[in-house]
Computed example of a mutant assay.
Amino acid sequence: MESQRTSVYGNNTNVDFTQSTDDDPLIDGPLVSQDAFESVIKREFQKLPTHWAVSVLSFLHVVYVALCIAIAVFCWISDEHTPECTAALQGFDSKTVVLLGKVALWVMVFIYDRFVQHHHGAVRRRGYLDFYRLTRGVKNLPLLIHSAGNALVLTVIAPSALLDARVKKLSLYLLLSIICLELLLSLICLLRYTVHVVKFNSKKPHPDVTEQERSLGCSSEAHTETGFRDGSSLEDVVEKQADLIDYLKQHNSVLSRRILTVTGQQIRA
Score class of each variant (00 low, 15 high):
Phe131Trp: 08
Leu248Phe: 01
Val54Leu: 13
His51Asp: 15
Asp130Pro: 00
Gln265Phe: 06
Gln19Arg: 14
Asp246Cys: 02
Ile69Gln: 14
Gly10Gln: 11
Phe17Arg: 15
Lys169Glu: 08
Ile69Met: 10
Leu152Lys: 15
Phe17Pro: 00
Val156Ser: 10
Leu190Pro: 01
Leu184Pro: 00
Thr13Ser: 14
Phe200Ala: 01
Leu162Ile: 12
Phe59Val: 02
Ser177Met: 12
Leu174Asn: 04
Val15Gln: 13
Ala158Cys: 09
Val73Ile: 15
Glu225Ser: 08
Ser220Asn: 08
Ser202Asp: 11
Ala53Trp: 08
His146Trp: 12
Leu183Glu: 03
Ala269Met: 06
Val97Asn: 01
Leu170Glu: 06
Thr155Gln: 08
His251Arg: 15
His81Val: 02
Val167Ile: 12
Ser39Tyr: 04
Val63Gln: 15
Ser78Gln: 10
Thr226Glu: 10
Val138His: 05
Leu60Arg: 15
Arg5Gly: 00
Val15Glu: 11
Ile259Met: 07
Pro142Gly: 04
His61Ser: 09
Ala242Asn: 06
Leu183Tyr: 06
Ile69Val: 15
Ala36Gln: 11
Thr86Asn: 15
Leu163Ser: 08
Glu80Arg: 14
Gln19Lys: 15
Val63Pro: 00
Glu221Gly: 01
His81Lys: 12
Thr224Gln: 07
Val73Leu: 14
Asp243His: 08
His196Trp: 05
Ser215Lys: 15
Gly101Ile: 04
Gln90Lys: 15
Thr6Ser: 07
Val195Trp: 09
Asn14Tyr: 10
Glu182Gly: 03
Glu84Arg: 11
Leu172Glu: 07
Asp130Arg: 11
Phe115Met: 06
Ser94Met: 06
Leu244Cys: 03
Ser186Arg: 01
Ala36Val: 12
Ile27Cys: 03
Val209Met: 09
Gln212Glu: 13
Phe92Trp: 11
Arg166Leu: 13
Ala161Leu: 10
Thr224Trp: 05
Thr135Met: 02
Ile27Val: 13
Phe115Gly: 01
Val237Gly: 05
Val62Ile: 12
Val40Asn: 05
Ile179Gln: 12
Gly231Asp: 05
Arg124Met: 14
Glu80Met: 09
Arg125Lys: 15
Tyr9Leu: 11
Gly231Ala: 02
